[in-house]
Write a protein that binds this DNA or RNA. Structure first.
Lengths: 344, 344
DNA sequence: TATTAGCACTCATCCAAAAGGAGTGCTAAC
DNA sequence: GTTAGCACTCCTTTTGGATGAGTGCTAATA
């Protein structure tokens, strides 16, 4: 059996209605809701077909129908195609310029959660391919050296190093010059062992410090790559009864608190690049187990070349996909603009 | 009427039992539970008295009794006294040394939440009275200067400053010296306007930068004082039916997400210093509105003189006060030890 | 052949009444 | 002062209609 035009119209009507109400929708409703001028009985026949084909299902024998994951998938796919053509007149999200990356990200998730009424997450941009801009060692006290590492996009990391014996100010200065001349402009992938050996040799008796700094650089650039995830609007899940029962709510909240559970989502999204960078995961499609009763919409954002991060919106399956996708696209643009300004 | 010995025993038995079960406790239970060898009827008489005195209450006419806030208060106060004498044989919480304050705090709340099965929070140590150890300005690129501010306890803050016109390396060096000679060893309260004016004058045409740096220092040391709060174990509230209904859960989770709602708790705790630094807020006693159905146990911790922070444990009123207080005391010690090691 | 009216049937939900049970307060006896 | 006994309260659970939304099927209709 195939999905003819009329079946499509009916399926869409069912889904639209369910997105609004969250209640199973019956044949009579559709009969009135659409302008097909068909009786409820005819609709019932079509619905039986749609159910057989797996697009909708009945919670129990004498209830209306709700969309299945397959149904949502159909809806999202065709909706996306149609909307692609439309102009995007979405109003701006109120983003203020932030000097620190962390604050920017926190602000983004928060604004996004407020705008969509869903739970949101954002991962800090992937800095692996990011280039080192600047290293600064400073003597803090007799036993500690502070390494400040700035990479492109003005991402700043600190690391406090223990030193065995006190270094003179001149030594610190020399090390600074040594490190900067060798490392500036390189990404973490560019730094190889030969280079490190070379630097260590030049550092002479202070070669151990060089080693520590290199480690710190690696650490700073890479380490919490998967931990820097911010979330907001967690308690929005209570707006949707289908997610608000204790079992589910508890699991979801746990996932949002233990942020490393969200890394799966980030990785998945960065891998599966399609044109727009926006992806929709419905129910079991999501890579995070605890979200199998949710839908997840993700977007990759880019701050200059190589600095990619992931934004995610998590809500019930009857999410307003349309609005969410538009909002995310809008956000992508704004972040892009923000970056260019930053750079000017 | 006074609280004679027998009434105390009965009251404690009621509370103990309620802490375990979370159900109203009846006279027959107490009659068996205690070794007073009294019949349920006698217990009933005593319970009637206790209710009249306000220590316990009946959810409805034919139910058992549950402790009132006043009852909990009595229990906590006397329990504390008794336990004060006991040796503390609590097992160590598994804290690993962390180089960054942020990581340490995150670890502490997490371990604490896992150990107690309640929701936990910690505020970063108050840095207001903290002394400036070291300031480092570095030229990042033509338009940006990076200010790194290190204060006692090796708390590091960064701030990226825009500059109108490019500064030479020498100028940056001069400014560094100027700032460090003037400001090192001072706390934020020590920095006055005269001093700032003096520095600005010495900086000549670069006085605006000095102003910006001072602002950054103030900002860095003070600003997110009330924002640096970490939480963990939020979803533990679902373990306790009396907190797990949607209304309450949603509010609590929101409070934990919007961390500035927790500042009230931090301030309150730092003010009301008693001997041990441990405080118990029962029900309405808590300064945070959304926790009026919870009990909150807070502890101040200290990392060296002046660096005080607050730890909080939030759970149902029938919290295991005994264990919580012991755990917190234990943690206070461990943090103290950790700090001394750090400092060595 | 596609559509529709009509009808029997299912099943969640609501409501009231009944049953059960835990626990109390009171009284009278010990 | 303590306790056994009993009537009483009130929550909780169960039960059994009644209601209503919605379906599937069949037979009539265009």
């Amino acid at each position: 059996m195939e999905l003819d035009v009329r079946k499509r119209i009916i399926l869409k009507a069912i889904i639209r209605n369910y997105l609004e109400t969250g209640e199973p929708v019956g044949s009579r409703t559709i009969s009135k809701y659409t302008d097909l001028n068909l009786s409820s009985a005819t609709i019932r026949n079509e619905m039986a077909d749609l159910e057989e084909m797996g697009y909708i299902l009945q919670p129990h024998t004498s209830a209306g129908r709700i969309p299945s994951d397959k149904g949502y998938r159909f809806y999202v796919d065709t909706m996306m195609e149609e909307k692609e053509r439309e102009a995007d007149e979405m109003k701006e999200l109120l983003l203020q310029r932030q000097d620190k990356m962390e604050n920017l990200l926190k602000q983004v998730v928060k604004v996004l959660a407020q705008n969509t009424q869903y739970a949101t997450m954002i991962s800090a941009p992937n800095t692996r391919r990011n280039k080192l801009k600047f290293i600064q060692l400073s003597k803090v006290d007799a036993a500690h050296i502070l390494a400040v590492i700035v990479s492109e996009g003005n991402v700043i990391k600190n690391s406090l190093l223990d030193v065995q014996q006190e270094l003179s100010e001149e030594t610190v200065l020399k090390l600074n010059i040594l490190l900067n001349t060798h490392l500036n402009g390189l990404s973490i992938e560019d730094i190889n062992l030969a280079m490190i050996a070379d630097m260590k040799q030049q550092a002479g008796i202070h070669s151990d410090i060089v080693g520590e700094v290199i480690d710190a650089v690696a650490e700073a650039i890479k380490a919490d790559e998967d931990l820097e995830i911010y979330t907001s609007g967690t308690n929005n899940i209570f707006r949707y009864p289908e997610l608000a029962d204790q079992q589910r709510a508890s699991e979801l909240i746990n996932t949002f608190e233990e942020k490393q559970q969200l890394t799966g989502l980030v990785q998945e999204t960065l891998l599966e690049e399609n044109g727009t960078g926006i992806q929709v995961y419905i129910g079991n499609e999501t890579p995070v187990q605890s979200m199998k009763d949710c839908s997840v919409v993700t977007a990759t954002y880019e701050l200059g070349e190589g600095m990619k991060g992931t934004i995610g919106i998590i809500g019930p399956k009857r999410m307003d996909y349309d609005k969410v996708v538009r909002t995310l696209r809008n956000l992508q643009n704004q972040l892009d603009v923000l970056y260019r300004e930053e750079d000017k």
